[in-house]
Write a protein that binds this DNA or RNA. Structure first.
Length: 474
DNA sequence: TTTTGAGTTGTTCGA
DNA sequence: GTCGAACAACTCAAA
């Protein structure tokens, strides 16, 4: 009896079994399926530490889910453009199915594979709602502003029903696989992931549970709740979406089944922001490395390593900023509102290059996503494509008192200030000596003096930005 | 082609 | 305490 040749299913940013068009196509071929994941090290923007932690656990979950259905996951390390053709040759596989990505390095790999494999290579859309090439202005241009982009997306129909997960997958006896443990993705010496473990459960089943819990409990309050860092008002779906443990289509579909409302609408807008970031990276591959507005290459940024280090460690002396940066370091995640405040502080108040912040977030976030991270940093720095008034400088004290009024968030992550009364918590340098003493705070000893005076630093940023823009138009 | 309205997330100042 | 205006000028997207 002649055995049919296998097909290879290459898992990339889509570590799931449900709503996986590439997997579905591989199964639909009627041939045995060999699932593969390839760890790539030698690329620009190699995975950061928090991402590696997540990947380890996500692959563990995927391995178990695949094993249960009869198709063990093969692990390899290196350049997919070399490994996959060799694997096809070795196993006799006659087709390769994979999800398409929007990162430049991944696209180069796709081009190399297409070159080698021709029509044996099949790409499917697994990571975005839409074909990123197909969203166009009336005149066929590329959107550069979020709102019209989002309107165009919302006006579209045909997002379609998510695909169910396969009940079983006809596998093959896989070639020798790498051992996940040998990839050394988990931190040791020291194991800094303790705080991450308490917060996050990677894997498809956990992702689906998180989605269901969010839609049931929090989405109705999302419009306001998402801005309060002391509360659990965000979806916390970002890492699951980044790794593709669930698809944006599954999210869109599940949300669409709910009664309409402000919260739901705001949430869908966030899903479209994710889409917009992917879209920008697709059309502007330099997004992570170069300001989209060329004039900003001339912004006189300050190269102050000690200030950057203080920001990274949560020792700027500005409580809401430090709380955010410590949350990031401890938990691998920062609340979105605080990301804006902390990022704005770095690029405006400290006038440090946005790419320094981008790199730090890239290394420390479990949801580190090349497109979203780059687009968001460019947005906050004012050099992105979605033009903002350059005088929009977040005041961390105002922001703190607005969004963390009672101070729960700051008290949690900056415990050395916990005993300060509400009215001074977000600006301890304004507290009378007696109040500081009573709270056990000694500025410069138990907690730093602020790195900069907010007022003059704001003015410095405004001047620098104004000069940069004017020189551009002059 | 030209025109027009609008642009995620803000802050400060002065009435 | 609250509210509206000012903060610049540009670019985008559609009419």
């Amino acid at each position: 009896m002649h055995k049919p040749p296998p097909v290879i299913l290459w898992f990339r940013s889509d570590l799931r079994l449900s709503d996986h068009p590439a997997l579905a196509a591989a199964i639909a071929s009627g041939q045995p399926v060999l699932p593969v994941y390839i760890l790539e090290d030698d690329i620009p923007w190699p995975m950061g530490g928090a991402s590696r932690w997540w990947l380890h656990h996500s692959l563990t979950a995927l391995t178990a889910d695949l094993q249960q259905r009869g198709a063990p996951l093969l692990l390899r390390r290196g350049d997919p453009a070399e490994i996959l053709p060799a694997l096809m040759h070795h196993t006799g596989a006659d087709a390769l199915h994979a999800g398409q990505v929007h990162e430049p390095a991944g696209r180069n790999t796709e081009a190399a594979l297409a070159n080698r494999l021709g029509d044996r290579f099949h790409l499917h859309r697994t990571a975005t709602l839409f074909n990123l090439d197909s969203v166009r202005t009336k005149t066929g241009g590329v959107y550069g502003v979020y709102t019209p982009f989002s309107r165009a997306c919302r006006a579209r129909t045909g997002i379609g029903e998510p695909l169910p997960p396969p009940a079983e997958i006809a596998g093959v006896e896989p070639p020798q696989s790498d051992h996940l443990a040998d990839w050394d993705l988990l931190p040791r010496h020291p194991d800094w992931a303790g705080g991450i473990r308490t917060q996050w459960q990677p894997g498809e089943s956990n992702a689906l549970e998180r989605l269901a819990a969010f839609l049931e409990n929090a989405v109705a309050r999302y419009k306001t709740g998402r801005n309060l860092p002391g509360e659990d008002g965000t979806s916390r779906l970002s890492p699951h979406l980044h790794w593709g443990e669930l698809s944006p289509r599954q999210v869109w579909h599940a949300a669409g089944a709910l009664p309409p409302g402000d919260g739901l609408d705001t949430f869908l807008g966030e899903i479209l922001w994710r889409e917009f970031a992917a879209y920008l990276l697709w059309h502007q591959p330099h997004l992570p490395d170069q300001p989209l507005r060329p004039a900003f290459a001339n912004l006189p940024v300050r190269h102050e390593a000690s200030e950057l280090a203080a920001w990274q460690r949560g020792q700027t002396g500005v409580p809401i900023v430090d709380a955010g940066m410590r949350q990031l370091w401890q938990r691998g995640w920062m609340h979105n509102r605080v990301r804006m405040i902390a990022a704005s502080f770095l690029v405006k108040q400290l006038l440090i290059d946005w790419r320094d912040g981008e790199r730090w977030f890239w290394d420390t976030l479990v949801d580190a996503d090349l497109a979203s991270n780059a687009a968001s940093w460019q947005w906050i720095a004012g050099c992105g494509i979605d033009a903002q008034p350059f005088f929009r400088v977040f005041n961390p004290v105002t922001q703190g008192t607005t969004w963390d009024k009672a101070g729960d968030y700051v008290r949690h992550y900056v415990p050395e200030l916990a005993a300060l009364p509400e009215q001074f918590l977000h600006a301890p340098w304004t507290a009378p000596a007696a109040v500081l003493a009573k709270a056990g705070v000694t500025l410069g000893t138990t907690y730093p003096h602020p790195l900069v005076e907010l007022g003059p630093a704001r003015q410095r940023a405004l001047d620098a930005y104004r000069d940069t823009v004017r020189k551009d138009t002059a």
